[in-house]
Simulated scan of single mutants.
Amino acid sequence: MRKRNVGIFACMAGIVMGLGISQLNVAGIFEKEPMKVYNSVERKIPESAKSKLKDEGKCWLCGSDDQSLMDYFRKFDDLGIICTKNWYVQDMRIRNHDEEGNLIGAQGNSRTGFSGTGEGGCFFHTNQMPDHGISEVSVSFGDDSFFDVRTVQDHLCQTCLDKLIESMEVYCGETEKPMARDLVLVDFQTLDLYALQEHNGGYFVRDYYVEIESEEDGIEVRAFYCPKLKNGKKDGE
């Protein structure tokens, strides 16, 4: 009888020890795995800055200055893309205009072009079809294609500088500083600015619809002239 009890006790002890070793091994496996840390992502804009422009009439956005073409483009009912680093203005030419800004009829052709903003900056490939109210601009980022407020502080009035900074909204981690690209969409008529960052999808800007699609090293911007229909019809139908 005593031998049988001893055998049962030994068997039970073996089971307990086996379970204990198994639990320890499982715990060891989990301890070896690195703990995953998830940082929340939120929308941020760069820190506000104070304008250093002394003459507001020479503001590169709302004023007139020899180093900005905005006073010329303001004649057109159209949209454009501004590279803020050197204030390069790319006219999207969604519709046909003459040099005075008057709308004109079909011209019978589309336009393709290439341009750049210099070493380390952005490169533009445009495909403009104004006879159909369509424009496509492919922007390739350079190594230095990031927004730096110091490049515009001396050239924008406070109102326009605030508006530009607010348009540089990007997604980033909770502890990270926003690193916005140095691009912004501009409405030549209202001078409203719209973000052109990788996370954006699209905008309705008056009678235009704009799509922004991220690419590997840049963005694709497509704009369409599509005025609102009245009772499902365009004017004159």
Rank of each mutant, 00 (worst) to 15 (best):
Y209H: 04
T84Y: 07
R43Q: 13
Y171H: 05
A223G: 10
L183R: 04
G113S: 15
G232T: 14
E42G: 00
E169A: 06
S140K: 10
I82D: 09
Y208G: 13
K54E: 15
F224R: 06
K32L: 03
I212L: 12
K52Y: 03
S110R: 13
A223F: 10
P178Q: 08
E47M: 13
V41W: 01
V205R: 05
C226Q: 14
E99C: 01
D91K: 02
D235M: 12
K177G: 13
N86L: 08
G7R: 02
C172L: 02
V186C: 08
H125Q: 14
C83Q: 15
L196P: 02
K233A: 14
R181E: 12
G133R: 14
V221I: 15
D192T: 05
E176Y: 11
K52C: 12
G120I: 10
T112M: 13
F114C: 08
Y38V: 00
I165T: 09
C122F: 06
G218D: 10
L164M: 02
L79Q: 08
Q158C: 10
E31N: 01
A106M: 08
S115H: 07
H97E: 00
T159P: 03
D98Y: 11
C172T: 13
R74M: 09
E166W: 03
S145P: 02
D148E: 15
F124I: 10
Y194Q: 04
R43L: 14
C172I: 08
K58G: 06
I94N: 01
K52H: 07
D235L: 13
D148H: 15
Q158E: 15
G28E: 11
S22T: 03
F141L: 12
T190A: 01
A106H: 07
G20N: 07
K228L: 08
D154Q: 15
E31V: 10
Q153Y: 00
N127Y: 10
R95Q: 04
S22R: 01
V6G: 04
K233G: 00
A49H: 02
V210W: 05
T151G: 04
P34R: 08
R111C: 03
F9T: 02
G232Q: 07
Q67S: 13
E56S: 06
G232A: 12
Q90R: 11
L61T: 06
G120R: 09
N96T: 09
H97K: 00
E31C: 01
S110T: 14
F76N: 02
H155E: 00
Q107L: 03
S64N: 04
E99M: 11
H199M: 09
E119A: 11
F224C: 01
D235N: 02
S140D: 05
F204C: 10
Y171V: 08
K3S: 09
F124A: 09
E216D: 15
V89L: 07
G101E: 04
G57W: 06
